[in-house]
Design a protein around this nucleic acid. Sequence first.
DNA 1: CAAGCAAACGGGAGCGCTCCCAACCTTTGG
DNA 2: CCAAAGGTTGGGAGCGCTCCCGTTTGCTTG
Lengths: 340, 340
Amino acid sequence: MGRRRPGTPTLEEVAAHARVGRGTVSRVINNAAGVKESTRRAVQQAIEELGYVPNLAARSLAGRRADAVALVMTEPDWRQFAEPFFSEIVRSLGDALTDTGLQLLLTLVRSDAERQRFLEYARGGRVDGVLLMSVHAGDPLPDMLAEARLPTVLLGRRSGEEYVSYVDADNIGGARSAVSHLLRQGRRVIATITGPLDLYAAQCRLRGYEEALASAGLEGAPTRVAESDFTAESGRRAMAELIARHPDIDGVLAASDTTAAGALEALRAAGRRVPEDVAVIGFDDFSLAQRTEPRLTTVRQPIEEIGRAMIRLLLEEMEEGAVAWRHVILRTELVVREST
Amino acid sequence: MGRRRPGTPTLEEVAAHARVGRGTVSRVINNAAGVKESTRRAVQQAIEELGYVPNLAARSLAGRRADAVALVMTEPDWRQFAEPFFSEIVRSLGDALTDTGLQLLLTLVRSDAERQRFLEYARGGRVDGVLLMSVHAGDPLPDMLAEARLPTVLLGRRSGEEYVSYVDADNIGGARSAVSHLLRQGRRVIATITGPLDLYAAQCRLRGYEEALASAGLEGAPTRVAESDFTAESGRRAMAELIARHPDIDGVLAASDTTAAGALEALRAAGRRVPEDVAVIGFDDFSLAQRTEPRLTTVRQPIEEIGRAMIRLLLEEMEEGAVAWRHVILRTELVVREST
DNA sequence: CAAGCAAACGGGAGCGCTCCCAACCTTTGG
DNA sequence: CCAAAGGTTGGGAGCGCTCCCGTTTGCTTG
């Protein structure tokens, strides 16, 4: 296959054109110190005139780095793809990377073949580090990356696992404070709509819910727990179910803002007033939470901080060569609005 | 920054270990012909034993190709991100690439700075070609890529533009046949919920709608056109508006299946029966169309073919060096189910 | 049995860059 | 005025691979 592009000027040609040595041009394009201002300008002009663009393959080879990191989504996260959580994370990572000079590449891994292909890509040195969206418990990718000694940071823990770097939000604490808030309001029949329970984050939020009830001397009944897949539609369905099972329901903690929005609709359809009859709390605090009617009380996940922390950890690992595992758990915060 | 990974074995070392020359090892890892079977096995064993992984930067440099293509999403498409259309396209492209040996990289371009950064990445030779999600009319990226002579294929035309390669569905024809179908059923007050009208595809579908009405001797009233942004929520809102404006409405063509699903809800809320009182037609024929109640009559977009065509065009351009623009318009097809 | 041919194979010559050290040029202080 | 101390600059030595050509090997054929 002849995938070659027409003759691009090389650094050497730029050097000749500017009547300087290769080293000087290299210093200029890398913004390195130790170049006289006049020389720098001359080189820059030569670059301009020749339309020079550095060959990144050569730079990678000589410099032993790719200047790129991958954000990998494995199949189970695919559903998140359609949810704001995903785009918020991507945005936040993008922001966190802006002045590192690193290019962010999203990659989808949907099968073993694709996993293998990505691994070759990463081990082949095309990326300097890997960010993983919260992966399934059984996914072998983190271990494979670890074995290849590729700097890796997970978004969201997998159950209790420590031998991998991750950034996560305090889901338990967030859910607990949300339910405590409901209890303080005098709500007594409190249900929860969970996320997919094969996700550790969803398990944690459920645990927080249970803990809050327990410490108030109440007991959570399994019938007050309904599972969703984070979508509005599933939230609506779950809420309808909960109403049917517990007509006296007066409080709900939803898995996400999107789910909560679905729950609000189901409540409206059932003729319940929010927050008078039923209080609703979401999770995430994305922009959606302020556009619902009534506006949503919700547990804020610090998305910006999550993105920044992931990049920070990854950079540290890249610097030191993946010699340690780092964990960051970010505090969540209850944002009270009109739905409680 | 020391982003170096520990000493990986090189091809040279593999060659030494297998007691063959570099060329032979290269032939083996590239599955090239002209290697005796016994030699091949010996080399493969050496590769195995040493845990050799080819250095892709070196391969890129020497081979003058990246073995990767980028799928770029610019800001305006960001909203599509959350829609099934996007994930379907990605899936379809992934499938189409499986045995080309090309890695698919998604890239988000949200600002001029990021556009510039991506351009350097692409011009620097890190990808062999670029796929663009349907871009805004004013986006300079296609021209920039063309100037850099990078093989590029757009998904979806921009209004009437020919000097770029693209793959698109016959949106006009699809909308026309949908509306004709409604007319044949004797529907007379037919409205449409369009997509964002700054998207050429949305304009085309609107045109198909108008053409079908015109050729039946009817006239489309502006009050029968409501704009959506492809989301279910906006579909619901648009439908509610249309009902209010035209209580005698008996047919609707929606911008997408998602929008149609929203419209179905609004109709249900308004107490209209589907299809008895109002017939609804969607667009796309994604899996959602079969999960609505009633199941959706819809205009099928051949997603698989779109993905395959995009890859085919891109490979052709990569082969020949972007010397021509290629256009493919794929036929759409009305799939009749229960909502009409 | 020698000549001839094709299939296998080895390795030189880059690909375009970074790294780094030696060489050169200024400046400054004694 | 000269030497030491910096500040600049040039370019050699790779980075690890592919390409390609010349050589070797293994057969076939006259």
